[in-house]
Design a protein around this nucleic acid. Structure first.
Length: 204
DNA sequence: CATAGGATCGCCT
DNA sequence: GGCGATCCTATGT
């Protein structure tokens, strides 16, 4: 079987988080459970959170708390937090240590471990919404607060692989982020990216 | 210590 | 399209 190459942390250690969010489309998120079984999915939707100047970011204004401390860690660190008391949202930290940039993974197109995903989601049949939406994507992959602060790597059983075929730029769409109306003018920034026409993207 | 609210989802109408 | 679920986090006293 053809193996994809691992995405190294240097991919994430760059200054332009918006560009990274865009480039992540088409990459494969892989999680391995304790039995060594892989769950994976193609990243079809992302959002960029641009650190201390971004009103939608948890780190806006340099906010530094227990929760947000993960955002200030090194590029390629997993930032997981609980939203609405129910949903675990999975992000990847980017840029240098001390700069709290992150990319939110909003939706996946399931590839491997679909039976496991169905079990985790409590669903009987596969459908486009198996990992559609950030809460559902994390749940399908078995991601929870235990993964917060981990460096993406095979050692930690969670990593990103390069795609065999990259996404053509004409198939990438951009628009405002979801659920960040409180961020005033920053809510309008086109920091959300998705693969055009993909059924596993969360919204039109 | 107490409390309000959140980068959502799925069920109900 | 409206709304309840459900609990961590941040903030204020």
């Amino acid at each position: 079987m053809l193996t994809n190459s691992l995405l190294s942390n240097s991919f994430f250690n760059r200054t332009n988080v918006v560009q990274i969010a865009r480039e992540l489309l088409g990459h494969i998120l892989v999680c391995q459970n304790s039995a060594g079984i892989r769950s994976s999915g193609i990243i079809v939707e992302t959002e960029a959170y641009n650190g201390i100047t971004d009103k939608a970011s948890h780190a806006y204004g340099g906010r530094h708390t227990n929760r947000t401390s993960t955002l200030y860690q090194s590029a390629g660190t997993s930032y997981v937090y609980l939203c609405y008391g129910i949903h675990h949202l999975f992000n990847i930290v980017t840029n240098a240590v001390g700069i709290p940039h992150a990319v939110l993974i909003r939706a996946l197109q399931p590839v491997e471990g679909i039976d496991l995903m169905l079990e985790r989601r409590n669903l009987a049949m596969p459908s486009a919404n198996l990992a559609r939406g950030p809460g559902s994507a994390a749940k399908a992959m078995g991601i929870n607060l235990k993964q917060n602060g981990l460096s993406l790597s095979k050692q930690n059983n969670i990593w990103i692989e390069r795609p065999l075929n990259t996404v053509d730029s004409k198939n990438i769409c951009a628009g405002p982020r979801i659920g960040v109306n409180y961020a005033a003018e920053d809510a309008l920034l086109p920091y959300r990216f998705w693969i055009k026409g993909n059924a596993c993207v969360s919204k039109k």
